[in-house]
């Protein structure tokens, strides 16, 4: 509901702002810094560490883009945005791009005049319950009390799901994820529902994670990806193909450890084209020929970024699942560098 109020306001202004803001690449190079909108704090995806340096899965995308353009992964000015301010910050030019767990939907893409350049994380809405409840499927949740964040798509998905399955539920509205954890642990609700990645992160932070289960049903599609304004194809291309470069690098076995060596030239022509030892892909984007080398050196390829920030060796402990490469049964698929 909240979002639909903003939709109208953006639609009128975004186009104007978008046109005025063409030549994004030039202005970023002049500024020497990328303005990247991130979330104000989401475990594993974006959060400042004890030294105030932003870390996380979404943050890594900003760093890769900054590295590709400016050859400096730290030349990013992170602008914390909330669910309400993110699109207007982008439309008004306060940020150059958003890398902020934003779901790619029809209205955002078309009506808000934004461009989703790809998907860096495939998420979906799920349920977490206490193991004591003895529930093994979401279809057994009839009559449950559900903690739900207000003003998000999850609220609508929940209503749809329960109606489609002819079940009733009692919503317990909450504002933030931290509040939800407290309410859920205090027993104010039987079920907590949000994106599965958020559930996993929340569960991992519990004192006894094993006492809680995430139910197998995923009731919605939440493809999260970086967003830019409409109206600057060159800039859109840079962000899109930087993301693709990270995914393609994993597919081609290029890591942050061997990228410098492979950039000298290999027998694989696609690796050569990606890393700039063959072809003119860099200059087509308006960048130097080693743009992809820099992007990959910043934080590694897609798989390395995943493992370092949210993978199963981290406290967040997410499995690759849908986010595995297409060759390994997942959905991550970079368009060919040709």
């Amino acid at each position: 509901m909240k979002k639909s109020v903003f939709v109208g306001a953006f639609a009128a202004t975004a186009l104007v702002a978008g046109m005025a803001q063409a030549q994004m690449l030039q202005s970023i190079q002049d500024r020497g810094e990328l303005n990247c909108g991130v979330s104000t704090g989401l475990a594993g995806f974006s959060a400042p560490d004890a030294n105030g340096v932003w870390q996380g899965f979404d943050v890594a995308v900003c760093r890769a883009v900054a590295a590709a353009i400016l050859d400096d992964a730290m030349a990013v000015n992170f602008v914390p945005t909330t669910g309400q301010t993110r699109f207007s910050a982008l439309a008004s030019g306060e940020v150059d791009m958003l890398a902020r767990n934003t779901t790619w939907t029809f209205t955002r893409d078309i009506d808000l005049r934004l461009t989703f350049v790809g998907v860096n994380y495939y998420d979906g809405q799920g349920f977490m319950v206490s193991r004591d409840l003895g529930v093994s499927s979401a279809t057994e949740l009839d009559g449950a009390t559900v903690c739900i964040q207000t003003g998000t798509t999850t609220e609508l998905n929940l209503a749809d799901y329960f109606r489609a399955n002819g079940m009733n539920y009692e919503p317990v509205p909450i504002e933030t994820n931290a509040e939800a954890q407290q309410q859920y642990l205090a027993g104010a609700c039987d079920v907590y529902t949000t994106d599965v990645s958020g559930l996993a992160a929340t569960r991992a932070s519990f004192e006894s994670p094993d006492a809680h289960v995430i139910l197998p049903e995923v009731i919605s599609k939440e493809p999260l990806g970086p967003v830019v304004r409409d109206g600057d194809k060159e800039w859109e291309g840079i962000v899109r193909w930087t993301l693709f470069a990270l995914v393609a690098a994993e597919e081609l076995g290029i890591t942050s450890a061997n990228v410098a060596e492979l950039a000298q030239g290999t027998d694989n022509p696609e690796v050569n084209r990606l890393l700039g030892s063959e072809g003119e892909f860099g200059s087509m984007l308006g960048l130097e020929s080693d743009w992809a080398v820099r992007a990959i050196s910043a934080g590694g390829n897609y798989g390395e970024i995943f493992a370092a920030n949210i993978g199963d060796q981290t406290p967040i402990g997410l499995a690759r699942g849908l986010n595995a490469l297409w060759t390994q049964g997942g959905l991550q698929y970079a368009m060919p560098f040709r």
């Binding site: 979330s39 104000t40 704090g41 989401l42 475990a43 594993g44 995806f45 974006s46 959060a47 400042p48 560490d49 004890a50 870390q55 914390p80 933030t176 931290a178 954890q181 407290q182 992160a201 929340t202 991992a204 932070s205 519990f206 981290t314 406290p315 967040i316």
Partner: peptide, 13 residues
């Protein structure tokens, strides 16, 4: 909120 979002301190309230 931001501190709580870091993996070290997630879950503290």
């Amino acid at each position: 909120n931001a501190i709580r979002a870091s993996t070290d301190w997630q879950g503290i309230y």
